[in-house]
Nucleic acid binder design. Structure first.
Ligand SMILES: [Mn+2]
Ligand SMILES: [Mn+2]
Ligand SMILES: [Zn+2]
Ligand SMILES: [Zn+2]
Lengths: 162, 162
DNA sequence: TATTTAAATAGGAACTATTCTTATTTAAGG
DNA sequence: CCTTAAATAAGAATAGTTCCTATTTAAATA
């Protein structure tokens, strides 16, 4: 999982500070683990898994427990500070980007990339769909092969079973 | 997981027959297990999990192994006979509906319902997104609370952790 | 129809992701 | 500083999925 280049260090520190305030507002104690976990989300592109976050932080907090990462990410999710992204693979993935955006999922490496499509918000859903329940969110999902995987070619991916 | 009312028995049997031919064309042996598994997918609404399928068929094939269900569904998927649906929960879900359609996911009971939106196909994706890779599929995903869960009220759902 | 054989299955073990339990540590308020 | 409830680490437990292998079976062939 690569580090992002799109956000520089001071942008990230600013968001971590803001996050710190948000924690206090939500009656969540500000622990080192929590800050590092949130920072790791911001620093990673492709919507990291729990393991991605865990391994990245182990260098800084060598006896971090993986359970803390699970617990903390679910906590953030329950407080609306991040969202959980569906998995095409079997691992949960998380998203610190709360802006209205959409996803491109690479079916080979399972990486998830963001994109924006402001006009989509204006398109109205068919009646048939409106009747299914109370809609809280509408998103577009693209599936395909990411540029990185296309470069690598057909190797380096394994399917399960047959 | 409820049985569907939208497809009657003869519709289903017709699709099972057609499926049987498709298996032969794909050099897949037509076994009782495979037919029952495919039939179970057709008979169930809400995009069943492996366990849903397993339990439904156990009454007919009492010593069906759960591994066979996993193996078979993945096999069908690899041959393009069904698709795998992303999980908001932790379980894999499967979809025998290969038509171009979209999903409404209930965040409470995790049920996934189909809807159709033909016009969506014509909307063109922003350039930004086109550059992410080779796009194979574009879908809309709605999240919310299904009618059934709304009726049941706030009880009957548990969140993990805190 | 009987025989053959590679493919498919059942059953249980193994593996992997996630959650739970409990003793210890710590943030934050007094 | 103290106090204390909240958070954590470590490892056990659980749940979903895949692997292993002896047995069964679909379907091609005689
Ligand atoms: Mn995102
Ligand atoms: Mn569907
Ligand atoms: Zn990729
Ligand atoms: Zn529901």
């Amino acid at each position: 999982m690569k580090r992002a280049k799109k956000q520089n260090r001071s942008d990230i520190e600013e968001r971590v500070q803001e996050f710190s305030r948000l924690c206090r507002k939500n009656d969540l104690r500000v622990t080192n683990q929590r800050l590092e976990i949130f920072r790791a989300l911001l620093e990673t592109v492709g919507h990291p898994t729990v393991e991605d976050v865990f391994h990245q932080i182990r260098t800084i907090l060598p006896n971090l427990s993986i359970d803390t990462v699970y617990r903390t990410l679910t906590l953030f999710e329950n407080h609306g500070l991040i969202t959980r992204v569906q998995c095409l693979s079997d691992k949960g993935r998380f998203d610190p980007n709360l802006e209205n955006h959409h996803h491109f999922i690479c079916v080979r490496c399972k990486k998830i990339e963001d994109f924006y499509w402001p006009e989509f918000t204006d398109y109205s859903i068919p009646d048939e769909a409106m009747k299914l329940g109370m809609i809280q969110m509408k998103k577009v999902e693209l599936r395909g092969i990411c540029n990185e995987c296309r470069r690598k070619g057909r190797n380096a991916h394994q399917k399960k079973h047959s």
